[in-house]
Design a protein around this nucleic acid. Structure first.
Lengths: 251, 251
DNA sequence: TCATAGATATCGATT
DNA sequence: AATCGATGTCTATGA
């Protein structure tokens, strides 16, 4: 897994190290030191310098981190071109991307540590508690939303975007359900409103719209009610939690 | 800047290393190896294992990276509690956060490389090309949007949310301008539509809504026209670029 | 603290 | 390639 590591290399040593490892298959590079970074792309440009570290992964993604926070100070999700050079006695990392056109240039003023790792590809991976799981749970147990509700379809496409749940209530009225796994805001109300407006002309009778979420912002609730739509608080999904937790036990 | 580095430490050596450096001031840790990660918090929980590396920064932020992508596979933006222990002969990193309650546990099955760096705090930093700059530019030169336009206000609050620009056209009609620095989509149309709807009842006469952006998606343009709103393509902001560059010189 | 909106958002699915 | 929707989005800002 560990291919090589150097502490306090000279620019020439660093350049040789980078050239040896940067384009080798499956290699992740980690370089810490005093760096100058320039980014230009999309609509913004940026310049920045200080104690930083750079990570270059095998897929060509590059990120420059500062002393704080999860978010990199500069990054490039995918590079079409990646090269290391000497310029004015300093190593220069140059990463380019087309479509959108972007450049990140990292000048290494001094390097304290550089390492090359071989990370084998992904391992098993589980995620639960997503909106997809919430949708699955409520499709199976629509009575949590409202007694007498029958689910007709999930992810039904209407114009642009898809309805989370398309159902019929006890009185036979069509019901459109929009799900949010977190607190619902304006955009959820507009989404639901848009779907209801798209379905109404296509079916006879009343079309109800229900926003189902664990919580809703106060202004969003006002907007929802003003639009004649409904909110259902989803407190818990007991069946789902048990089912979903099972895989964890067999880890 | 480089405090310490170890290759292939035993669990006991690794534990001692972590305990020595993890709570020292201004230290960033980098640990690569075979890791098992469990996250639980908010609405989701997740389990995941494989060749990974962990970065713990001085602010307590923790991120676990896999072989691909800029985004970490697991992370914790801020930790209230961070601790390293031995469990079943493996080092276990335990990071907790209250409000929201979240836990990330990293079990180190094997460690190839661990390092401790001291990154001094931030350096100079420049950014340009933001929406705020675009707003400033168009407020000064509203003729780019439309000849005869007079800007009345910027960031005017109406109910919830704020108008980017509030203006009057050559015929004296009120105009609401929504800006996007990139390609405008649905959400920009909904935002503008919401603002226009909020302002209309409060002023006499016609209220126009203009979405000003370098580009717009086809569905968004259809929605915009259906709502009786307008699109203005903003190709370039020549005056702004010069002005915006000035502060750079004095940084 | 809550609510809103921007972001070089990233990422995956689907057309 | 373009577009849309979700994200453990994160982060800044204002009420």
């Amino acid at each position: 897994m560990l291919r090589a590591v150097l502490t306090h290399p000279t620019p020439a040593e660093l350049l040789a190290f980078l050239r040896e490892h940067v384009h080798a298959g499956g290699v992740t590079l980690h370089l810490a030191g005093e760096l100058e970074v320039v980014y230009a792309g999309r609509a913004a440009s940026m310049a920045e310098a200080g104690d930083r570290f750079v990570i270059v992964k095998a897929d060509g993604s590059l990120q420059v981190h500062g002393p704080r926070g999860v978010k990199p100070v500069n990054w490039q999700p995918r590079t079409d071109f990646l090269q290391a050079d000497l310029e004015d006695g300093c190593v220069l990392l140059h990463a380019e991307r087309r479509s959108p056109a972007e450049v990140v240039r990292v000048r290494v003023l001094s390097c304290a540590l550089v390492s090359a790792l071989t990370l084998t590809d992904d391992a098993l991976f589980l995620l639960q508690g997503t909106e997809a799981q919430m949708q699955e749970a409520l499709a199976r147990h629509p009575e949590v939303i409202e007694p007498g509700l029958t689910v007709l379809d999930r992810e039904l496409l209407v114009g642009v975007g898809g309805l989370d749940l398309y159902a019929r209530d006890a009185q036979g009225r069509y019901v459109i359900v929009e799900l949010k796994r977190g607190k619902a805001g304006h955009e959820a109300v507009h989404q639901l409103s848009r779907y209801v407006g798209a379905v109404r002309p296509q079916v006879p009778g009343v079309v109800r719209g229900i926003l189902a979420a664990p919580d809703i912002t106060t202004p969003a609730l006002r907007a929802l009610e003003a639009a004649g739509l409904e909110f259902r608080r989803i407190e818990a999904l007991p069946q789902v939690q048990e089912e979903a937790l099972q895989p964890l036990l067999f880890q």
